[in-house]
Computed example of a mutant assay.
Amino acid sequence: MRATLAGCAALLLWAFLALLARLAQPLPPLLLTGLAFAVGGSLGLAVVAARRRLGALRQPPLVWLHGVGGLAGYHALYFAALALAPPVEANLLNYTWPLLIVLLAAPLRGLPLGPRRLAGVGLGAAGAVLLLSGAEAGGAAAAAANPAAGYALALAAGVTWALYSVLAGTRRLARVPTEAVAGFCLAAAALALLGHALFEPPAWPAGRQWPALLLLGAGPVGGAFFLWDIGMKRGDPRLLGTLAYAVPVASTLLLVAFGEGRLGPATLAAAALVVGGGALAATARADRS
């Protein structure tokens, strides 16, 4: 139960991911990814060192490929999507990953789904689709740099994160200690910053971008990874995947509150569907559904 609660805490932190990423704009996506991971990885490494667990960073290449590829790949795709497409719609398309986690957990982890949990997934998916079809961002699509490319990147980000999350709990990776995430974050930072130097125009944060970066690194692109790792390895991935549908609702409301979209009937109806789906899945019996 504690592991699942840790995963829920990660979901709470991720509700602020889109807003903080938007506040850090217009930083190039790879630079934003690299700097946020540098903050999160440094804080994590300090905690690991204080606990005298630096030996946990010694992991085989496959583990590093999974950790660094999943973290760096997902966030680079996600930040690029937010830069190219209307933030509300891109954010919601990214949140195909809760549905994919619930569905992939069955074949990859041998966990049953059951009718009640599937019904909860269906309600959450309906809420996300309703939000997207409602076009709450109004005319933002016309002003976006490349909406189609942004939507494709957001969907790719969702697939990447779902695979990373579910595979973390498979037999080969489940024994990797959570402390190793600090190393993954720092390696992801180095990889993203190298990509920035090679492929993006030079840039550097200024003004409100610095507080947004520090908060990103401490929370959604830092502490949340450690909590999520615990939740996916020792908690219930089906329940966490379904409860994750609350994140796009909370994230959308935060974007709207800071002027990145507008609130309308579709958002309110979708929120009811998402919350109802999460509640339905949460009441599913662990042994049968």
Score class of each variant (00 low, 15 high):
T4S: 10
T4I: 07
L5N: 01
A9N: 01
A9M: 12
L12T: 10
L13P: 01
A15V: 09
F16C: 08
F16E: 00
A24S: 12
Q25L: 14
Q25T: 12
P26Y: 04
P28M: 07
L32M: 08
T33R: 02
L35F: 08
L35I: 14
L35N: 06
L35S: 01
A36W: 06
A36T: 15
F37R: 01
V47D: 10
V47I: 10
A49M: 11
R52M: 03
A56Y: 00
P61D: 07
L62R: 14
V63Y: 08
V63H: 13
L65T: 13
H66V: 05
G69N: 07
G73C: 07
Y74T: 08
L77Q: 09
L77M: 11
Y78A: 10
Y78L: 15
L82Q: 10
A83E: 11
A83F: 01
P86D: 01
P86N: 12
P87K: 06
E89W: 00
E89G: 00
L92P: 00
Y95M: 12
Y95F: 15
T96K: 05
T96I: 15
L99N: 05
L100V: 03
L100F: 03
A105K: 01
A106Q: 13
P107A: 08
R109I: 02
G110A: 06
P112D: 05
G114H: 14
R117T: 12
V121A: 15
G124R: 05
A126E: 04
V129Q: 02
L130V: 09
S133F: 06
G134E: 02
A135D: 09
E136H: 09
E136A: 14
E136W: 02
G139D: 14
A141Q: 11
A142H: 12
A142E: 14
A143E: 14
N146A: 15
L153D: 00
L153V: 11
L153K: 02
L155P: 00
A156I: 11
L163R: 00
Y164W: 11
S165A: 15
V166Y: 01
V166E: 04
L167V: 15
R172K: 13
P177H: 07
A180M: 13
V181G: 04
A182H: 04
A182F: 05
A192P: 03
L193W: 08
L194F: 13
H196F: 15
H196R: 07
A197W: 15
A197E: 15
A203L: 10
P205Q: 11
Q209C: 05
Q209M: 04
A212Y: 02
L213W: 01
L214S: 05
L216I: 12
L216T: 02
G217H: 02
A218P: 03
A218V: 04
G219D: 10
P220Y: 00
G222Q: 07
L227H: 09
L227F: 14
I230V: 15
K233P: 03
P237C: 06
P237I: 03
L239R: 12
L239S: 01
L240W: 04
V247W: 00
V249L: 14
A266C: 08
T267P: 05
L268Y: 08
L268M: 15
A269D: 05
G276S: 08
G277P: 01
G278D: 00
A279G: 04
A281K: 01
R285K: 14
R285C: 12
A286W: 07
A286D: 13
A286S: 11
S289M: 10
